[in-house]
Amino acid sequence: MFIITCPYCGDRDQTEFTCHGEAHIARPLNTESLSDEEWGDYVFFRQNPKGMHRERWVHAHGCRRWFNALRNTVSDEIFATYKVGDARPPLPENPS
């Protein structure tokens, strides 16, 4: 049961949030010119790393804002949360 720091509201219980997977996947602008593989890669394929993961959360039962988090998927430690469009925080020196 995480405590997640919503960049807009502060520390809140995990039950107020929903996770929406890997962050920083930009929708291709030129979809018509993509190959099936490139399109499939955008729609379906994910890093799914064992370790540091940049991911999207939404404060669903709060301000309803989307934001990004940097979390270790092994320890579930959240190192940072940041607004969409903000610079990506660096990876921690001591991730676990």
């Binding site: 997977g21 499939g40 890669d41 394929f45 799914n48």
Partner: peptide
């Protein structure tokens, strides 16, 4: 599986 796939240099359409 994603960890093994990464060793082989590709991604999978999988999340854990």
């Amino acid at each position: 599986s994603s960890v093994i796939a990464e060793m082989a240099g590709f991604k999978l359409p999988i999340e854990c």
